[in-house]
Structure formats: structure tokens, C-alpha cells
Write a protein that binds this DNA or RNA. Structure first.
Lengths: 159, 159
DNA sequence: TTTATACAGGATTAATTAGTCTTGTATGTA
DNA sequence: TACATACAAGACTAATTAATCCTGTATAAA
């Protein structure tokens, strides 16, 4: 999340590209891509590994199953797996699955109505290209890459 | 805000750089910069002009006064004015005033702990430069520029 | 076939953010 | 001085997002 009304104290601001739910979803799928399991992985294992509230993650996984990013196996020895190869799952697909698709018409940052290339909002010329970069980043990164880098990072941290 | 949990329906996702309160604050200050008033402008006038809930804006203005971006004049004929020249008020100052300052340590997009140039999160090399561009954009744009462009836009729309 | 296990899913609660209400206080003007 | 006006401020309500609870259903193994 970004922020808070903060009518006089001082929390913190950060840019938000997606919801907490989507963040958890991305983390969970990175975990799956990372360990390349040959059998289903329990949601509880993932939740523990990444410190995600178990029940909440279970809820999010239901969505991921419905959106066919994940397949679930029920019953004893059950768990979840990626529905397709890690290199074929991109971050924006995860985000869209959880948060819903991006808006039809791009929104103005300033919040003034009617913002387009023709009638731009006062920040349009600076914001539009940055927004494109973000969308590009999210649509180019796939789980295989991300998992690889997580593993690399671990090596760095433990050396 | 960005999104929603959306456990199966389909709202919309958008990148969030700051809270709704900060957005209203920016709009209100643009209004002041735009009309360059020689006397105080009533909060109700601004609220009406930009369709901001009056009471809510009044609350936000209190913060802006405390943070010395705005000076308020009470009583009859009262209202608010920019505390300094429009060219000396930058968007990030408004955002920081309302949402609080940015975090000491930049956060990882993915939400995995420990993210820096040395131990980067898997999206770090792509996200870090984009984030810099955003911070740069917000710290370079001042109210005078924005107000000018709003006026230009109006001309475009009514021609 | 019984049982333990693991996902499915609706209902509920908690936390945060957004917005409203009501009263107080300062101030210009009649 | 009286009064209307406009910001100040705290308490309260509403909406959204995050998280939890509890029961159901599928399934592998004893």
C-alpha cells in the first residue's frame, strides 16, 4: 500500500503496483518456481516459508486455481503446482488474476478527469512513459527468471 | 488505490503513487496556483470546483497549514492561500506533507525482505530505476508548471 | 471403510482509509 | 457589541482491504 490519511503523524509512503493479495500470490508462485517440485506443495509450507498468513494465502490460491495459474490436488499428499511452465507465467498475469485487469482507459495521476494524449493532465507527459515502463516490466518478467534470481540472491547472502 | 482482493470478480487495477488525501491536496493547491488570488480562497470554493468532499478537504487543509504549505485566514472573508510562491512548491512536498515522508529504506516491490543493490530482490534491477524516475518526476514538478498546463489544457478542450 | 489430511468456500472480524458531523474559535462587518 | 462567516478539531460513520474462522468435500493410506 502507499500511505494513510495521516492527519498529523508520520507513517510511510510507498508506491503501490498491486494489492497485498497479489504480492502474496507472486511470492507463492516464485516459491513453486524455485523448488521445482515433482509433487504437490502444501499451501501451509509456502505460507510458512514466506511468512504469509495461511488462511489468507489459501483464499488467494483459490483464485489462482480458478484463473488457471495453479492446479490444486486435494486430500492427503495434496497441495498445489504451477499450471504451466514457470517461463510461461508472467507477473502481470498473476496480478491481473488477483487484482483484476487493468482499466480500459488509463487514469490520470493527478485525478483530474479527462486525461489523454490530446487533453493531457498536467503530469501526463512525464507519467505516461513511466507507466508504460512499469507495465512493460510486469509483462516481461516471468517466474523462471524471478526464481533464478532469488536463488542467486540466496547464494550472495550466504557467502 | 490500486486494487482489491477480488476473490473472483473483476474491479480494476491502477498504480498508486499516493493516497486519495494527497491527491485532493494536490488538486486544491493547483487550483490556488491557477487562479493566483489576491485574497483568501474559501475551501468550499475549491471543494466545489474539483468535486472534493468539503469536510474531507477541510481536514486535509488543516494538515497543509500545519506543514506550512498553506496559510489560512479565519473568519469572514477568510480562506486559504499558498504559503509561498507556486514555483517553490513541489508535488513531492505536498505528498510528503499529507502521506508522511518516504521510507528510510527503499522497499522491495516483491515484498521479499532485504532488498538492496547488493542483495537485490528479483525485480530490483528493473524496478529501482523506474522508482527513481517517479521520485524525480514528483520532486521536479512544481505548482507553477502544473497550473500553467491545466490552463493550457482548458484552452485545448474549449476550442 | 475408516481416518487423517489438504484444498474449497462462505461468513465473520480486524485494520486501514475515506468521508461526515458537530462544536469550538477567530475575525470582519453591520 | 452582536452576528454571520470561515477555519480548527475531535468524534464518529462508511467503505475497502486484509485476515481469520469454521464447516464441507475430496482423496490417499492405514
Amino acid at each position: 500500500m502507499v500511505s494513510s490519511n495521516n492527519t498529523n503523524n508520520t507513517p510511510e509512503l510507498n508506491f503501490m503496483l498491486y494489492s497485498k493479495s497479489a504480492e502474496y500470490a507472486i511470492q507463492a508462485l516464485i516459491y513453486l518456481a524455485e523448488i521445482k517440485p515433482d509433487k504437490p506443495v502444501m499451501i501451509s509450507e509456502i505460507a510458512e516459508a514466506y511468512n504469509i498468513p495461511y488462511q489468507f494465502l489459501a483464499k488467494i490460491v483459490q483464485t489462482l486455481v480458478k484463473q488457471r495459474l495453479v492446479v490444486a490436488t486435494r486430500g492427503r499428499n495434496g497441495g498445489i503446482n504451477l499450471a504451466r511452465e514457470a517461463k510461461d507465467i508472467f507477473i502481470n498475469q498473476i496480478i491481473n488474476a488477483v487484482d483484476g485487469p487493468p482499466p480500459e482507459k488509463e487514469q490520470c495521476v493527478i485525478g483530474l478527469d479527462e486525461c489523454s494524449d490530446v487533453t493531457p493532465c498536467p503530469l501526463h507527459h512525464k507519467w505516461a512513459p513511466i507507466r508504460s515502463q512499469i507495465r512493460e516490466m510486469l509483462s516481461e518478467e516471468h517466474l523462471d527468471d524471478l526464481a533464478y534470481r532469488v536463488i542467486e540472491k540466496r547464494k550472495l547472502m550466504h557467502s
